Simulated scan of single mutants.
Amino acid sequence: MTTPTSYFEHLYARDADPWSFATRWYDARKHALTVDSLPRRHYRSGFEPGCSTGRLTARLAARCDRLLSVDAIPSAVATAAGHLAAHPHVTVRTARMPTDWPDETFDLIVLSELGYYFDDHDLRTLLDRTVAALEPGGDLIAVHWRHPVDEHARPGDEVHERLGAQPGLARQARHEEADFLLEVFTRTPPEPRSVAQTEGLA
């Protein structure tokens, strides 16, 4: 089953930063690697579902002309909005995925620590809507924890297996560690080009 919203509500009720994003080096490093893995220097419009307290959002804000970040938990949205108050081009709002998927397109979508909370039906819907909302040539970056968690519907590696089999996506990069898996995909067609090819170096 998809992890119920009440699980997250209880987490945030006990602690405004339940995963210690503000203090943990593991997450600061992972967030930096996530943003550094983006193939383009800048994006017109980004979407980050499951933004939590907005720590990754703040890094993404510097790479996007416009960024929409959402989370299902209002208290998390309030915390994220506070962190992003100095960035008027960032919109943070409450939305539950995949039901409340926005009716617009993006050239960047970020799925960070999100996919393993969904059952088969909801994950399929999430991935289908991700591809449909990603503009041709747009980038999708996905990063997921690899260790077992009781509240996860599936391992992080399985989420990436599903992404790799999703029509309309071509894998551009893969970073694998014992703790997490990070991959970058590009929406096809057109055929994806590497950073060096884009800059005329190859």
Rank of each mutant, 00 (worst) to 15 (best):
M1R: 08
T5K: 14
S6T: 15
S6K: 14
Y7K: 04
Y7W: 12
A13I: 00
R14N: 12
D15S: 09
D17R: 09
D17V: 09
S20C: 12
A22E: 15
T23W: 04
T23V: 14
R24H: 13
W25M: 10
A32N: 14
L33S: 08
L38K: 03
R41E: 14
E48F: 09
C51L: 09
C51M: 11
C51K: 02
A58F: 02
A58K: 11
L60A: 09
R66N: 07
V70I: 15
V70K: 00
D71A: 04
A72E: 14
A72P: 01
P74N: 01
P74M: 06
A76D: 05
V77M: 03
A78K: 13
A80M: 04
A81I: 01
G82F: 03
G82T: 06
H83Q: 14
A85P: 01
A86D: 15
H87P: 00
T91S: 14
R93H: 06
T94C: 13
M97I: 15
T99W: 01
D103C: 00
D103I: 02
T105S: 15
F106R: 09
L108V: 04
V110C: 05
V110M: 05
V110S: 13
S112K: 08
S112P: 04
S112V: 03
E113G: 10
E113W: 07
G115E: 06
F118R: 05
D119N: 14
D119H: 11
D119F: 04
D120G: 02
H121S: 13
H121V: 13
T125M: 10
L126M: 15
L127M: 10
L127W: 06
T130P: 04
T130G: 09
A132D: 15
A132C: 02
L134N: 12
E135P: 00
P136W: 11
P136E: 12
G138V: 02
L140T: 05
A142R: 02
P148T: 06
V149N: 09
V149L: 14
D150M: 03
A153L: 02
A153W: 02
D157Y: 04
E158Q: 14
H160G: 08
E161M: 12
L163F: 06
A165L: 14
G168Q: 07
G168S: 04
L169W: 08
A170K: 08
R171I: 02
R171A: 07
Q172H: 06
A173C: 00
A173F: 10
A178W: 12
D179L: 11
D179A: 13
D179S: 15
F180A: 12
L181M: 08
L182R: 15
L182Y: 01
F185Y: 15
T186V: 13
T188F: 10
P190T: 10
P190I: 06
P192T: 08
P192S: 03
R193S: 04
V195H: 05
A196C: 07
A196P: 00
G200F: 00
G200N: 10
